[in-house]
């Protein structure tokens, strides 16, 4: 039996985000999956070509419209909903792009959405974390009909290259709203590895004490080729920008190495790092909950330890 799955590509107009390749891996876990990737853009050619190369993708639907120059959920949703008519499963990544968009698509389709899919047991049965990852819930679509889902990207490896899908232009006749307008975006500096895809991540907490304090982390991270993350407390205090927050309400990541420095290990933080291969904790409080999940723990003052590590490597 074939199961038609539509994946909404995340991209910046030029480059396909790796989250899309992870959605493809999720979709490929369904037996009989026939996978289409929708690229909504002002000019879709470059991104469509990248999507076509992902192993497992059967077709790429290029949806070109000047209104798609910026990814606005209110503008994209009616287009995705129109494309979705032929599909039983409609997936996007569990990034801010996908979470914002897919639930609006689900609303238009009046279909149920499964958020943060971490495992797909059948085309209608999914597992997902709830309560900040303190419980896992298996849900099943009851009755006929579509399912919309967001894919917890940390749960799936990106699909490899090597595909050669056909690229089709999709002409849609939907009226797009003008009630929502893009004004600006202030993107993070991109001279550092991306937090969501980096193999190594070094995160700092409240203990860093200031934006100045975070500099010792940037310095160590530069030496390790690591991305830098932060706890909510550090972001709230203004030591680090919001896009660095790791956790239930920040980014969920799965690096090879995660180093938590001066982070206590609140449950909301831990949910963001559960899938890290190796967790290292540096904290002056030997009783801190972070040590419960750390593969390697070091009790001590971070302001001494961090520069020392940098010297030793």
């Amino acid at each position: 039996m074939t199961v038609k799955i539509l994946i909404v590509a995340e991209h910046d107009g030029a480059k396909l985000n790796q989250s899309t390749a992870r959605c493809v891996s999720c979709a490929r876990a369904v037996s009989g999956a026939e996978i289409a990737v929708a690229v909504c853009a002002a000019d879709a050619a470059a991104v469509a070509a990248q999507a076509a190369q992902l192993a497992g993708v059967n077709r790429v639907l290029a949806v070109e419209n000047a209104a798609n120059a910026h990814a606005l959920a209110a503008v994209l949703a009616p287009q995705v909903a129109a494309l979705a008519q032929d599909y039983s499963l409609v997936l996007g990544p569990s990034t801010t792009f996908g979470k914002d968009l897919m639930a609006r698509v689900a609303g238009l389709l009046e279909a149920p959405q499964v958020s943060d899919i971490m495992a797909i047991e059948s085309p209608t049965r999914f597992r997902r974390p709830i309560y900040a990852g303190n419980a896992l819930l298996t849900v099943e679509r009851s009755g006929e009909g579509k399912v919309v889902g967001t894919v917890r990207t940390a749960s799936f490896e990106p699909a490899a290259a090597g595909g050669a899908a056909v690229i089709e232009k999709a002409a849609l006749s939907v009226t797009l709203p003008t009630h929502t307008r893009f004004v600006s975006v202030s993107a993070a500096r991109n001279d550092r590895p991306d937090l969501q895809t980096a193999a190594r991540v070094i995160s700092g907490g409240r203990a860093l004490g200031s934006a100045e304090g975070f500099k010792i982390l940037y310095s160590l991270a530069a030496k390790l080729g690591a991305a830098v993350g932060a706890s909510r407390a550090a972001v709230d205090a203004g030591y680090a920008p919001n896009e660095m927050q790791v956790g239930q309400t920040g980014k969920i990541i799965a690096p090879e190495l995660y180093v938590a420095i001066g982070i206590s290990g609140a449950i909301q933080h831990l949910t963001g790092i559960k899938d890290a291969r190796t967790i290292v904790a540096i904290n002056k409080d030997g009783e801190a909950p972070i040590f419960e999940v750390a593969d390697i723990g070091l009790v001590g003052d971070l302001f001494q330890i961090v520069p020392e590590i940098e010297r030793l490597i």
């Binding site: 419980a135 896992l136 819930l137 009851s142 009909g145 559960k274 419960e292 999940v293 593969d295 390697i296």
Partner: peptide
């Protein structure tokens, strides 16, 4: 109710590691 709640499970626990 379009999604049936099939089963709730505790998450797998990470094992406690070493101290250096």
């Amino acid at each position: 109710q379009q999604l049936k709640l099939v089963r709730f499970e505790p998450p797998p626990q990470r094992h406690k590691g070493i101290r250096v």
